[in-house]
Design a protein around this nucleic acid. Structure first.
Length: 648
RNA sequence: GCUGCUGUAGCUCAGAGGUAGAGCACUCCCUUGGUAAGGGAGAGGUCGAGAGUUCAAUUCUCUCCAGCAGCACCA
């Protein structure tokens, strides 16, 4: 055997025979390392302890101390262990695939009977048995025919399909966990006993299409989460509870913001409190847009299908549009209209009125555009994914040369708004040309470059999503991170020369000839409905004072203070603060509890003492301590808090 | 749309083949209480909709509607 040289993380090299495995290497260092080893990194690649190394390389032996490989292996091995447990319990269940994902893994099974919560318990128990048996993990390379025969003999059609999908020439690797075997890329742990038996949990079962294709059979997917130790699992459970507490559907009810009902699925009945958030946010956005050189317009809800045919939406999205048919008594033919699912064709109509000069460009048209889309029933989710919503939509008509500067301007606009709204952490993604597209490669080169350059010019970096652009142009996506680390894609900017073409938009250039403008579709919040949902979940209902629908409750402690309560409320209202009185015949404890649960940011308690001294006792939401302050001082302070950030 | 689960009072939930119950909220009475539930009384439901089985259905079966968790979708 030819010698090879392996370089360790400390820079030292040693010579081994070619074909040496990381397990051998670890054993050559120490017995304890050999036992503790879980995998290796060979030239930066995650490497199974059993895989041979045939050439010079850098190597590092991983142990459970190394978080990333440890978690990946634990979760991946658990996927196999779970599949084995399921087949031991129900031998006729067919196995498919089971990747690592998020905080755990899933595995898809084909089985007639649905898995029940009791089944999950049984599977978990069986998995623990397998872990405690410390079953060895072995790997071998099989021939294609051998694998297909094996799976055919075992009646595993999904596995046969997987084998057939693996490109010729790529080795087929099999992994054994004890005497149960699965086709798998690896790597895996040394034996099942390396998986912590007390740090995983099967969470739920749901349907999932085979290979993610909705024309293929639906399988049953079992999800699990797993960590290195019980403490991390507990932390995950706590985090889940925290997320549930923030659920905007729950808070929406508790704060009396909105409701939804059967007769209007996917549409929001905004209550006074919720609508106050909405209008406050909209007023704020309107000010930003005016400042940034937009003109605001409004376009019709119900538009003849002819326009949707011309824009191309009828062809592509008819299934998702609300169609309205009007059958007038004497009409020769029915008029078929659609509720607008988007605002862009309307904005092109506005642009097309009158001759436009190059001097008019860039023309920035904004609309708080109410749209209706017939979203699939299964997609609906609270106010986050709805059928009726309002976008903070805008279209910038400009020349190709102006794309860069307009993009830069928009990024600055969006950055200011996200900052004002309390989102400090957000990222940009650039989606580039997809397979199916229109326009020349030179045009795509130019457009992608101008978007990328604009990001850099605005001082931001971006991640590239290859092939994710729209068929008509590249796009930027703006994704913000919320207080508990979840991400939400909100803003977008898309370059489009297709729609101006289809709808015949043009302007007169300096040369006196007609030219085609390009159109930048852009939104910052996305939709008010979804964004308010995000605001609620981000803040757990503790909205910033200026956005809080109810800002102050002035609560009497004794009925002798009622009159003064009304005075305080009047003073606050005069200073632009949303204040209300609570002079019900209830104890202060009761009032504090109720308004705290209602997420009112400030409670001012007023008793005999305050009446006497012209003070109030202030208590802020989430704080236990109170402060006695002079009335005029509090009015000034709260009036300042109530001012939107752009007016402060 | 697909798979699975769910639908009982405003909210959270219990219940059983013989037409319903709790806590909170609501109304009234007593209580004037100093920072997260003071006490008492009262009112409130076509048990998601329709059909079927049955002497009898809110309970069992089917269909539909809506919600929830995923999947697929998201111009």
């Amino acid at each position: 055997m030819a010698p090879i040289s392996l370089t360790f993380p400390d820079g030292n090299s040693r010579s081994f025979d070619a074909g040496v495995t990381p397990a051998d290497v670890a054993a050559s260092i120490s017995n304890s390392l050999a036992k503790k080893a879980i995998s290796a990194s060979v030239n930066g690649q995650h490497w199974d302890l059993q895989w041979p190394i045939n050439e010079d390389a850098s190597i590092a032996i991983n142990t459970m101390q190394d978080d990333a490989p440890a978690l990946e292996l634990i979760r991946h091995d658990l996927a196999h262990i779970m599949a084995r447990a399921v087949q031991e319990l129900w031998p006729d269940v067919k196995v498919t695939i089971g990747p690592v994902r998020d905080n755990g893994w899933f595995y898809d099974f084909d089985r007639e009977e649905p898995f029940t919560p009791e089944d999950l318990g049984a599977i978990e128990a069986k998995m623990k048995e397998i872990i405690n048996a410390r079953e060895p993990v072995k790997t071998e390379i099989w021939g294609r025919d051998e694998a297909i025969d094996y799976y055919n003999a075992r009646n595993e059609p999904f596995k046969v399909e997987l084998v057939n999908r693996i490109p010729e020439g790529e080795p087929l690797r099999m992994y054994w966990h004890g005497d149960w075997q699965d086709l798998c890329r690896g790597p895996h742990l040394q034996h099942t006993g390396q998986v912590p038996a007390d740090a995983f949990k099967l969470t739920h079962v749901a349907g999932a299409y085979w290979l993610g294709d909705n024309t293929r059979p639906m399988l049953q997917r079992i999800y699990g989460v797993a960590f290195k130790n019980r403490k991390d699992l507990k932390a995950w459970e706590t985090m889940m509870e925290e997320a549930a507490k923030r659920d905007h559907r729950k808070l929406g009810r508790e704060m009396d913001l909105f409701h939804m009902q059967e007769e209007a699925p996917g549409q929001v009945f905004w209550h006074a409190n919720g609508w106050k958030i909405y209008t406050t946010l909209q007023d704020y956005m309107r000010r930003q847009q005016e400042r940034d050189g937009y003109v605001e317009v409004n376009t019709p809800q119900v538009i003849d299908r002819k326009l949707w045919e011309a824009s191309g939406h009828w062809d592509k999205y008819q299934e998702n549009m609300f169609i309205v048919e009007v059958d007038e008594e004497h009409a020769r033919e029915k008029t078929v209209n659609a509720l607008k699912p988007m605002n862009c064709p309307g904005h092109v109509q506005v642009f097309n009125q009158g001759l436009k000069s190059y001097r008019d460009l860039p023309l920035r048209i904004a609309e708080f555009g109410s749209c209706n889309r017939y979203e699939p029933s299964g997609a609906l989710h609270g106010i986050m994914r709805v059928r009726g919503f309002t976008q903070d939509d805008g279209h910038i008509f400009c020349t190709e040369e102006q794309i860069g500067s307009e993009t830069k301007k928009f990024i600055a606009f969006l950055a200011k708004i996200y900052d004002d709204l309390g989102f400090k952490d957000w990222t940009i993604k650039l989606s580039t040309r997809p397979e199916k597209r229109i326009g020349s490669d030179e045009t795509w080169d130019k457009l992608e470059k101008s978007l990328g350059d604009a990001c850099h010019a605005a001082g931001y970096d971006f991640e590239v999503l290859e092939g994710e652009g729209a068929f008509y142009g590249p796009k930027l996506e703006f994704t913000l991170t919320d207080a508990i680390g979840r991400t939400w894609q909100c803003g977008t900017l898309q370059v489009d020369s297709n729609l101006p073409e289809r709808l015949g938009a043009s302007y007169i250039g300096p040369d006196g000839a007609k030219h085609r403008p390009v159109m930048l579709h852009r939104a910052t919040l996305g939709s008010f409905e979804r964004f308010i949902g995000i605001l609620i979940e981000n803040s757990a209902g503790h909205l910033p004072f200026w956005l809080a629908p109810r800002q102050v409750v002035v609560a009497s402690i004794v009925s002798e203070a009622d009159e003064y309560v009304n005075e305080v409320v009047a003073a606050l209202k005069a200073a632009g603060v949303r204040a209300e009185a609570d002079i019900r015949n209830e104890k202060i404890n009761y009032k504090v509890r109720e308004h705290s649960l209602g997420k009112v940011p400030v409670i001012l308690a007023v008793g005999a003492r305050e009446v006497e001294e012209k003070t109030v006792t202030l208590r802020r939401l989430g704080q236990k301590q109170t402060a006695v302050k002079a009335l005029n001082e509090v009015v000034a302070e709260l009036s300042k808090d109530a001012t939107p950030p752009d007016l402060a």
